[in-house]
């Protein structure tokens, strides 16, 4: 049954999207505003973007964010893929248990994850003699990325022919060859989706970074710091860039998923 889109329904839909996206639209529009006013349009300019790229604090935060996102995404993808293979081959009861454990960080509030990691790092830091910094930030990002990679790889493993691994062995592969030459290529779309997802999550994370980065600053932390002082339209510019980057990544992830579904549907 298809619900009728009455006038009330259409209005509700409009309001929903309006409240969701109007603020972002305003932000993007005013990132091109020629004065610092956030209420009156005074003319078009790229000045804020130019200023942005001359701002050393922002550039260094951008560098940190990109570095931690790339490293965390790659490390989490490697760890998460092997973990998914391990979980997949467990006995049913253990597998269910591991999946539940895996889901906890996904649904857990970021602030809890952030605070608990912070406490852990401070505690271990006292014992082993290190401080919060890029290292702890990276470990934190890898930690919260891994469950998403696992969730992205597991469905691909489930789709595999049960005998695929044995078929590779049968044709002369050692255990490692079978994994790298057959299993990995077959689950590759899931692995890359996991990688993109992890990268996206890392780029826009604020809460967990805030608690684990110490003196290091990521882009989202820099934006937050800027809002505390005088609000400059540079924030609009950097937020616009961040928003568009995430949007682009999400579009890529979704398009890939649709393509894979079409391909899978075409098979049957």
């Amino acid at each position: 049954m298809k619900p009728k889109n009455g006038k009330g329904g259409r209005l509700l839909t409009f309001l929903l999207f309006f409240f969701l996206y109007a603020p972002i639209l305003v932000l993007i529009v005013f990132s091109f505003n020629s004065t610092k006013s956030r209420t009156v349009w005074t003319g078009f300019t790229f000045d804020w973007y130019v200023k942005l790229f001359n701002n050393d604090a922002i550039l260094s935060a951008l560098y940190t964010t990109l570095l931690v996102s790339v490293l965390a995404a790659v490390l989490a993808t490697v760890a998460g893929t092997f973990a998914a293979v391990g979980i997949f081959n467990m006995k049913r009861r253990n597998r269910e248990l591991m999946l539940q454990v895996n889901n906890i960080p996904v649904v857990n509030a970021d602030i809890i994850t952030g605070v608990s990691l912070c406490i852990l790092f401070v505690f271990l830091g006292k014992m082993l003699g290190f401080e919060l910094g890029f290292g702890t930030l990276l470990i934190a990002h890898v930690t919260f990325n891994i469950p998403y990679v696992i969730l992205s790889v597991l469905p691909k493993l489930r789709q595999l022919d049960n005998n695929l691994f044995e078929a590779a062995q049968d044709l002369g592969c050692s255990w490692m060859q079978a994994f790298f030459k057959v299993i990995l290529p077959e689950i590759w779309p899931g692995v890359t989706s996991g990688l993109l997802m992890a990268f996206t999550l890392s780029i826009d994370d604020f809460v967990i970074s805030y608690f684990t980065a110490g003196s290091v600053e990521t882009l989202s932390m820099r934006i937050y710091a800027m809002t505390k002082k005088r609000i400059s339209p540079e924030i609009n510019a950097i937020s616009t860039i961040l928003f568009l980057t995430i949007l682009l990544l999400l579009v890529v992830i979704n398009v890939r998923e649709v393509r894979q579904e079409k391909k899978a549907a075409g098979k049957n």
Binding site: N163, L164, E166, A167, D170, L171, C173, P185, E186
Partner: peptide, 17 residues
């Protein structure tokens, strides 16, 4: 191990790559 046996298998659901 299977990879060292002069034996090959045709699996039930073919297990093609």
């Amino acid at each position: 191990p299977p990879n060292k046996r002069p034996i090959n298998t045709v699996f039930q659901n073919y297990a093609l790559f």
